[in-house]
Design a protein around this nucleic acid. Sequence first.
RNA 1: GUGCCCGUAGCUCAGUGGAUUAGAGCGGCUGACUACGGAUCAGCAGGUCGGAGGUUCGAAUCCUUCCGGGCACGCCA
Length: 569
Amino acid sequence: MTEYLTSVLRPILADLGAPDDFVPAFETPGNPEHGDLATNAALQLAKPLRRAPRQIADAIAAKLRETADPDRIAAVEVAGPGFLNIRFSDRYLAAALRDLRSHGDGYGRTDAHAGQTALVEFVSANPTGPLTVGHGRNAVLGDTVASLLEAVGYAVTREYYFNDAGRQMRILGQSVRARYDALVNPAMPTKDVSGNLVPETFPDDGYLGGYIEDIARSLYDAHGDALAASDDETPFKQAAQAAIFQDIEGTMRRLGVKMDTYFNEHTLYQQPDTGEKAPIYQVVDTLNERGYIAERDGAVWLLTSKTGKVGKDGEPVDTVLVKSSGEPTYRLPDIAYHVNKLNRGFDLALDVFGADHIATYPDVLLGLDLLGYDSKKVDVLVYQFVTLVRGGEQVKMSTRKANYVTLDELMDDVGVDVTRYFFLMRSPGTHLEFDLDLAKEASDKNPVFYLQYAHARICSILRKAEETGLVLSSDADLSLLTHPSEIDLTKALLHFPQTVARAAEQREPHLVAGYLREVASAFSQVYRDSRIVGEEKNLAEARLALADATRIVLGNGLRLLGLNAPEKM
RNA sequence: GUGCCCGUAGCUCAGUGGAUUAGAGCGGCUGACUACGGAUCAGCAGGUCGGAGGUUCGAAUCCUUCCGGGCACGCCA
C-alpha cells in the first residue's frame, strides 16, 4: 500500500515543486482515529517549499482525492499541523485479506534482499563446558535473526566459530587429567580451589563443573589406569572436547538451532595446501605492504594510531597483532576470520555476541578497511548480559567456576518454547534478568502460551466448522466483515510483512513477538464479538476466512520464531 | 578516567522526531460461561518517562550535562 501511495503521490509532489529526491515517509498511527496510514510529507516540505505545512497538506489532499483509486483509498484527511491521514477502503481490506490467504505459508516473506547472501555467526562457544543460560540468549537470538533474514530474501548460512587449540583447552585437559588421576589413585591428596575440594594436581584455574568428572570417569572406564603413565594430556583434551561438543550439539538440536557450518579458528594459523602463508600472516603481510605495520619491542603492531585511534588518556595508540613471544593476539585471527567471510562472497556477515566483546570489533572493521575490504558488509548484533537470579540473589555466571544453569536444565524445567520465547520477548539491547524461581513458577503464564492458545483455538474452530458442513472458500464475500473488531483484526494481519521486514532490518525479533501478541489479542476480541458456526452461510464463510487468515499469520509468525504452532493443546 | 549500553506503572518490559489521554503482561481489585477451547474477555487502581538545561510548531524519543546500574578499555581469550 505504501508503494501504491508513493507512486500516486510522486506526480502530485512534483507538481508542487518538491525536490526530486524527496520520498514521503509513512507510518501506521497508534491512534486509529488518525487513519490507517499517515504521512508527515507536508511538514517536511514546508521548509523547502517555504509554504505553510497545512496549506501544502490541503493541496496534496485535494489532488489525492481526485487521483487515488477509490477501491483502495476511502478517505484522505488533513489533521493537526499538516498530517495527511489516509483511510483504506473496505474493498481494499477484502482484497488484501484474499491476497494474504493465497500466500499461505509464504505470507510475511518479502524479497527486499532476494539474491543476496548472509553469514550469521553465533553461539561460537569454545568447547569448555555445556551451554548455559547465558549462551541461550546468543543461540536463540542468532538463530531467529537468521530466520528473519531468510524471510526478507537472504540466503543464510549459520556458522559456529570455535577454538579447540588455546590455553583454555589446555587447562580443560589438565582439569580432566587431575580428576582421572584421582580415580586411578584414590589416595591422592586433595586441596581447595574456590571452595571446592579437588585433587592435588588440579589446576588452580581449572574447570570445576561436574561434567569434568564424568569425562574422567568414562576415560577410566574405557582405559583403566593405562593413561596415567604418560605425561601427554592430549587424550584428556580430546576426550573432553569430543564429549563437550556432543553435549553442545545436543543442546542446540533440542533448542531447534541447526548450524550449517563449523569454522575452526585453528585453520587460520595453518598453511594452506597451496603453500601460501597461513591466513593470519597473509593479513600481516598485506597490512605491512600498505604501511600499517611496525615492529617494536619484538612484537608486531598494527598502527591504529594512523587512523586516529586514541587510548584512555587521549594519546594515539597502536594495537599488538603478534606478541614478542611469537604468538598472535586474538585480534589477528578475528581479522583473518572476517577476511575469510568476505572472501566467501557474503553480502552480509552478521556477528552475534554479548556486550563483553563490544570492544573487539572496531579493530576488526578497521583491519578490514585497511585491507581494502568493505567493512560495511560486517554487522554486529550486540546483546546485553543475562543476569541470573536464584533465591532472590544474583549469581555471577562462570563456566570455569561451575556457577551456571545449563540450557538443558532450563529446557527441562520450562520447555523449549518457553525458553526460546523468553529470550525473544525482550529487546536485545536491554539487560535480561532471569529469575529462575519465577521462570519455573510462571511458565504456564508465559505469553507464548497465549499465542499458541489462540492458534490452537482457531484450528479447533476450523475443525468444528468442517463438521457442520462449512467449507473454507477462497471467494467468500469478505465485505460482510463489518464488525469493528473484525476490521481491527484484518488491519493487524496486514501488518505482518512489514513487521517481519523491520525486525529483520533492525535485528530485533522481539518486534515479531510483540506483534503476534497483538494479533492474538485482536482475534480473542473477534471471538468474543462474532460467532462462526451457526451463522448464516455467507457470513459464516467470511468469518471463517478471517479466522483462517489469522491462523496463517500466527502460524507463520510462531514458526519464524522457532516456536511450535500447535493445532491442539 | 574514557567509550558503549541501560534507567518508563508495585514487578518485568514495549514505545517508528509528531496530533487531546505514554502502552502491554504479571501482581492487586471488580465483573462476564444455557458458548465455535474461560489457557479467554471486559473494567478499575497504579506514571514528576532518573534529574536539570537546550533544539523544535511539537521531545520518553534528538543535543548537552549531572545522577544511578551494566559492560569494555592488556604483548588475556
